[in-house]
Amino acid sequence: MAMNNLKDVYIDQMQDLYSACKQSLDATTALGRAAKNKELSEALIAGASGISDGMEKVAQLCSDHGVDPDGEFCKGMEGLVKEAHAHALDEEFGDEDTQDAMIITQYQRMVHYALAGYGCLVAFANRLGLDGDAAVLQECLDQTYDGDKRMTQIATHGVNAAAA
């Protein structure tokens, strides 16, 4: 599809974010199973649920605009997911707290990609006068920020100290 205007960019980036979320969902679930810290594991399970909810909302927005949410494949998230597997799941760790610290690192990298995606989509929707879309996407962005803050708190108030 040719990018002729901001609406085209908006649609393309919604599809890209949907793909990113789809890929990160499986990785987040795997990270949650691998986490040894109970609070971390629970936060990752909640994160997976949040990703799934965001996917449903983005899919509905795509449908509202007459496009298939599966119209793009996000190569950026593909790389982040590969990194998460290589560094947090497939790596050998001598200490489970150290693995938990790496799990947080890899998860937050994926989350920050989603934060950038949602932030851009909110700005595009606002500029295009798509107030309903903007409100839905802002809710997704806020929930993603909340999850990221929770992960930082888990890292700084326990996991990182235990790994040190």
Score class of each variant (00 low, 15 high):
residue 121 L to D: 02
residue 92 E to F: 12
residue 74 C to H: 02
residue 150 R to M: 03
residue 14 M to Q: 06
residue 87 H to F: 13
residue 37 N to V: 00
residue 39 E to D: 11
residue 147 G to D: 09
residue 96 E to F: 14
residue 74 C to Y: 05
residue 4 N to G: 03
residue 155 A to S: 14
residue 160 N to Y: 01
residue 7 K to M: 12
residue 132 G to S: 01
residue 131 D to H: 15
residue 85 H to K: 00
residue 103 I to H: 02
residue 114 A to I: 02
residue 34 A to M: 11
residue 140 C to W: 03
residue 154 I to N: 04
residue 66 G to F: 15
residue 31 L to G: 00
residue 46 A to I: 04
residue 155 A to V: 00
residue 71 G to M: 14
residue 155 A to D: 00
residue 145 Y to V: 15
residue 130 L to W: 10
residue 105 T to D: 07
residue 135 A to R: 13
residue 89 L to A: 02
residue 149 K to L: 15
residue 89 L to F: 07
residue 110 M to Y: 01
residue 164 A to S: 04
residue 153 Q to I: 13
residue 30 A to P: 00
residue 31 L to D: 07
residue 150 R to I: 08
residue 67 V to G: 03
residue 45 I to Q: 04
residue 111 V to T: 14
residue 108 Q to I: 06
residue 129 G to T: 11
residue 66 G to A: 13
residue 24 S to H: 09
residue 80 L to G: 11
residue 125 A to P: 15
residue 9 V to S: 12
residue 42 E to T: 14
residue 70 D to S: 02
residue 122 V to W: 06
residue 101 A to N: 01
residue 4 N to V: 06
residue 20 A to H: 13
residue 124 F to C: 10
residue 33 R to L: 12
residue 151 M to I: 06
residue 125 A to M: 12
residue 25 L to Q: 10
residue 108 Q to L: 06
residue 56 E to V: 14
residue 56 E to W: 15
residue 132 G to W: 08
residue 98 T to V: 12
residue 23 Q to G: 10
residue 28 T to K: 04
residue 54 G to I: 04
residue 141 L to K: 15
residue 63 S to L: 05
residue 69 P to R: 10
residue 131 D to E: 13
residue 144 T to V: 14
residue 11 I to K: 09
